[in-house]
């Protein structure tokens, strides 16, 4: 019994920060569960979604505090070392969630960088993402220029030369609409109903029955976009 209490005490000392895993498995932690849902949504939905500042910042703080707490433990007993290993593994897993979320968004931003600029979607991005898209645009434009647009007549250049002070993304960025890759809103996504809902016109076209809670369907994203936003359905 004493040994058990001692182990628990050591565990709390090493833990330091307030990340309480309790006796629940990782997937049951509400914050982690939320983050996994956010990643899934970002991965499956074709368009760029608003940056989840609050959740990311919460997870970021926890990782930072946990790392500090673990690194502060300089001299350790073998038992403490064991717990440090466990906590470091957990930190790596949390970091993996953060990395996956940021990478998923980054790949989408790269793919739709001109769409984000031309259609004023920059407000959906974090500050770091905004800086990224601005520089990515400039690098791409300069690369095209170095490779071939410098040899074309000025009137044929779709990335028109802009002044340095205007070199930030905005809807009037001088880029031809022909080059803009748009997210395919018709792409089918799997959704799960969070509540019962009567059949709605223009929704799942071939279904005539009412939609029941827990039902899983494959539908074009633009048909269920409103339901996802209203939390009536969720991406699975």
């Amino acid at each position: 019994m004493e040994a058990k209490e001692e182990t628990k005490k050591e565990q709390e000392e090493v833990k330091g920060a307030d990340l309480d895993y309790g006796d629940e498995p990782e997937g049951e932690n509400p914050l982690i569960k939320k983050m996994i849902k956010i990643i899934l949504k970002e991965r499956e939905i074709p368009e760029i979604l608003p940056y989840e500042e609050e959740t990311v910042s919460e997870l970021d703080t926890i990782v930072k505090e946990q790392e500090e707490a673990v690194s502060e433990q300089e001299t350790r007993t073998a038992n403490e070392n064991f717990f440090v290993m466990i906590y470091k593994t957990e930190i790596e897993r949390l970091k993996f969630l953060l990395k996956t979320y940021l990478r998923t968004r980054l790949f989408k931003i790269q793919k739709y960088y001109l769409y984000i600029i031309k259609h004023e979607k920059a407000d959906l991005l974090s500050k770091a993402e905004y800086n990224f898209v601005a520089n990515y645009f400039l690098y791409k434009r300069n690369h095209f220029k170095e490779c071939f647009t410098k040899d074309l007549y000025d009137s044929l250049n779709d990335f028109v030369e802009i002044k340095e002070e205007d070199a930030v993304p905005h809807k009037n960025a001088p880029v031809s609409e022909d080059l803009v890759v748009q997210p395919s809103l018709k792409r089918p996504v799997f959704i799960k109903m969070n509540c019962d809902m009567p059949r709605v016109n223009d929704f799942v076209m071939e279904t005539k029955e009412n939609l029941k809670m827990g039902e899983i369907m494959l539908v074009p994203y633009d048909n269920c976009k409103d339901l996802i936003e209203a939390n009536v359905a969720e991406i699975v």
Binding site: V63, K64, R93, K95, F96, K99, L102, R103, A128
Partner: peptide
């Protein structure tokens, strides 16, 4: 640059492509 500024904790987004 993005990796350094995205979050406050020390995070290299180019590593751990698979769940650890």
């Amino acid at each position: 640059e993005y990796s350094q500024n995205a979050v406050e904790c020390n995070l290299d987004i180019t590593t751990t492509m698979e769940p650890p």
